[in-house]
């Protein structure tokens, strides 16, 4: 069986109609027309095949007049898959954008002027990494130190890593520290402190008129985790500082004076 016999019926994708051959037309001309027809079929075949291989069915559909029924169904399936891909990509993008917004909010909370996200210096491709910049100056990379490939969407682990980097580089806004470190001050203690003229400034207690300060940022390494100020006796204030390494520093205040030196 020759190839001519295999497609003796008009191929479904072939829209070329050979003109009626005039008995007077030479054999050479007839052969030329047949050859041109075959090229046309081949070119249409390439087009049809590419339509189906194409990643953009919407574009392909505009030029799908040469597709047979089976190919059109295939194209419809591709179109649906494409729509699904677009939808999934959109959702993924929205989640990504929201995540970056969360990260920006977290960066703002550090109160470090010019602090921003950027391209990491080292990109492993397998893990989510970010470069941290201050006024376009590269500070360092951060990534999730655990086994997770990316940061959580709420950015809680991101915040820890940014804070760690900023501390390593000695960049930390005092204002941010003031906001960050929870001062748990009992109302009675606050009242007494007000009476004595004590004020909280960042991690320090300003004794007001005495022009002295008590730095509550202990030497436990890594800073202060928590500060509790309470009244343990009438007119006696107890200040307990929990350091990041889990150690504690304590100090007492009586009648506006420090009884025990803070380490």
């Amino acid at each position: 069986m020759g190839f001519e016999q295999l497609h003796h019926d008009e191929p479904k994708i072939n829209k070329v109609e050979n003109p009626p051959v005039d008995p007077g037309v030479s054999e050479k001309k007839k052969t030329g027309n047949e050859y041109a027809s075959k090229i046309k079929i081949t070119l249409n075949a390439i087009t049809a095949a590419l339509m189906l291989l194409s990643a953009t069915p919407a574009f392909a559909e505009q030029k799908a007049e040469n597709l047979n029924e089976s190919q059109k169904i295939e194209l419809q399936i591709q179109k649906l898959k494409e729509q699904q891909r677009v939808l999934e990509n959109k959702e993924r993008q929205e989640r990504h954008d929201q995540k970056l917004e969360n990260f920006k909010t977290i960066l703002d909370s550090f109160k470090v002027k010019g602090l921003s996200l950027g391209k990491p210096n080292f990109d492993s491709r397998h893990y989510e990494e970010h470069g941290i910049y201050i006024d376009s100056k590269y500070i360092g990379d951060i990534r999730n130190p655990g086994h997770a490939m990316s940061f959580l969407e709420d950015g809680s682990d991101f915040k820890i890593e940014v804070e760690k980097l900023l501390r390593e580089k000695g960049i930390y806004s005092k204002e941010a520290i003031k906001e960050k470190i929870p001062f748990n001050i009992e109302p009675d203690a606050q009242m007494i402190m007000n009476k004595w003229g004590w004020k909280i400034k960042g991690e320090k207690i300003d004794f007001g008129s005495r022009t002295q300060e008590l730095d509550l940022n202990g030497d436990g390494g890594g800073g202060t985790k928590d500060i509790d100020i309470s009244v343990i006796n009438d007119g006696v204030i107890f200040i307990m500082v929990e350091n990041m390494d889990g150690t504690f520093d304590t100090v007492y205040g009586v009648n506006g004076k420090i009884l025990q030196e803070f380490k």
């Binding site: 190839f3 295999l6 497609h7 191929p11 479904k12 994708i13 072939n14 075959k38 079929i41 081949t42 249409n44 075949a45 390439i46 049809a48 095949a49 189906l52 291989l53 047979n68 089976s70 190919q71």
Partner: peptide
Amino acid sequence: KITDEEVVAI
């Protein structure tokens, strides 16, 4: 990925 007719044509 193409049809038999297209294979034959090419």
